[in-house]
Amino acid sequence: MTRIEFHFNAPERLQYVCRLLRKAHARNLRVGVVGSDVALRQLDTALWVFSELDFLPHSTSADTQDVQTASPIRLHADPAQWVGLDVLVNLGDDVPQGFEKFERLIEIVATDDHGRMTARQRWRHYTAQGYDLLQHDLSKIAPP
């Protein structure tokens, strides 16, 4: 069964996701990130400028299939086609289709009212499906 975690109270959501992806990449995990086209474009840009010392190899839906397959980090609005990834990170408002084929799903929840409201809806969906959810309150963690 997929392990589902909610990381909430993310004040700088994109920076947090970049750090999370850096950590996953260092552990040789293959990660898919799903969300709106706007959020994924912003993340793509953030990954290029995130750190002068780290390169986080990633692909988007605009890349060729070969590039996407070779990429350890994939950004795409539709995760249903992905095979062989370990972790799914959700930046979207909805429950991602096909999340159950991943070992782990991480829901990133910002501090705004809309983000909290949609996260509550996803939380209810997962618990209704019988998932035990883990929660990480990022406001209680010291910044890196």
Rank of each mutant, 00 (worst) to 15 (best):
V33D: 11
V34D: 14
G35N: 14
L40W: 13
L40H: 10
R41K: 11
Q42H: 12
L43C: 11
D44R: 00
D44Q: 01
T45K: 05
A46T: 02
A46Y: 10
L47A: 05
V49I: 14
V49S: 15
F50T: 10
F50I: 08
S51C: 11
S51R: 11
E52K: 15
L53M: 08
S59C: 13
S61G: 06
D63W: 04
T64R: 04
T64H: 06
T64D: 15
Q65W: 05
Q65S: 09
D66W: 08
Q68I: 05
T69W: 08
S71D: 07
S71W: 09
I73H: 09
I73F: 11
R74Y: 15
L75H: 05
L75C: 02
H76Q: 13
A77S: 15
A77D: 03
D78N: 08
D78R: 06
P79C: 06
P79M: 01
P79N: 01
Q81N: 07
V83C: 13
V83L: 11
G84Y: 15
L85C: 07
L85F: 15
V87M: 14
N90R: 13
L91W: 08
D93F: 04
D94Q: 14
D94F: 03
P96L: 05
G98W: 01
F99A: 00
E100L: 03
F102H: 12
F102K: 07
E103P: 01
L105E: 07
E107H: 05
I108S: 10
A110S: 13
A110T: 01
D112R: 02
D113F: 07
D113T: 06
G115V: 07
M117A: 15
M117S: 15
M117W: 03
A119M: 05
A119R: 09
R122A: 07
R122P: 14
R124D: 02
R124C: 02
R124G: 00
H125F: 13
H125C: 09
H125V: 11
H125A: 10
H125N: 09
Y126C: 00
Q129Y: 03
G130R: 05
G130T: 02
